[in-house]
Design a protein around this nucleic acid. Sequence first.
DNA 1: TGACATAAGGTGTATATACACATAAAATTG
DNA 2: CAATTTTATGTGTATATACACCTTATGTCA
Lengths: 147, 147
Amino acid sequence: MSRRKEKYQRLADCSCDRIRRSARQVTQLYETMLREVGIKPSQFTILATLANSGTIALSPLADQLMLDRTGLTRNLAVLERNGWVRIQPGPHDQRQRVVALSNLGFDKLDQAIPHWRRAQQALSKKAGETTLVDLRENLLKISKQLS
Amino acid sequence: MSRRKEKYQRLADCSCDRIRRSARQVTQLYETMLREVGIKPSQFTILATLANSGTIALSPLADQLMLDRTGLTRNLAVLERNGWVRIQPGPHDQRQRVVALSNLGFDKLDQAIPHWRRAQQALSKKAGETTLVDLRENLLKISKQLS
DNA sequence: TGACATAAGGTGTATATACACATAAAATTG
DNA sequence: CAATTTTATGTGTATATACACCTTATGTCA
């Protein structure tokens, strides 16, 4: 394989690949914990955000979650099917749809919180609290610089 | 909304959500740069890995990439359709399939590298080199602790 | 007010990620 | 060597992510 050169070895330093790998691993840890209550990490995040925001239209919710709007639509369809959120036409603007956590959604969130906490603690224990704090700080910094 | 309490505000400190957001943002930066040569970040990573590994069976490749094996299968199907990789039955083990970069794949990789470098540099510039180095270090540390 | 621009949202399509389950080949073992 | 176990891989299914394009409602301005 004459084309296998040192030149290609540096490609391993890809920051995109690096963060994606870690994100997959962390996600799997949280999925394992949250699976016990039948909820996914991304669903948990949406429920938690809705618990704080109250009724909110789709686009500002997507902004707040830094999520793609079209992906949010489809994710919310699942949450609605599960009865965790209510989606209604916007009260003033007929283009809007506003979403809010239902009582069932609050229940599911309450039920999930202890498992989420276990995931947070497990990650902290495995990664080391200092490393994790530094990491989160740097991730936040980078997020702000990229938005 | 009587159930909107401080209790839910702490949920914003989710490490899983934090890393996933940043991963999305970083991925989008790389996608923007790599789109010009018609290749995705994850495809780039696979091509780069294959350039270094040479012919390799699917499972060890998935291990090396820390990728789900079944996802790799489907990703490779696209790469094969594009003519960037060759997939053949394993020479000794009839269960295996071994994959290798084709000449077209090396060409595509060579073509993509300058754009990937631009993405790396853009990220470094936006995030700050120090922050980025720290981040990568912590990500690597966490990856090792979680694997 | 009517024409046009803008904003909110949905749909189609492609890839990414992960798990449960299925199949076939190879390895092991009695 | 035949039966069983393990290994390598594929398939079905569900969700995640992103972009291009479409529709409809709202806003703007001549």
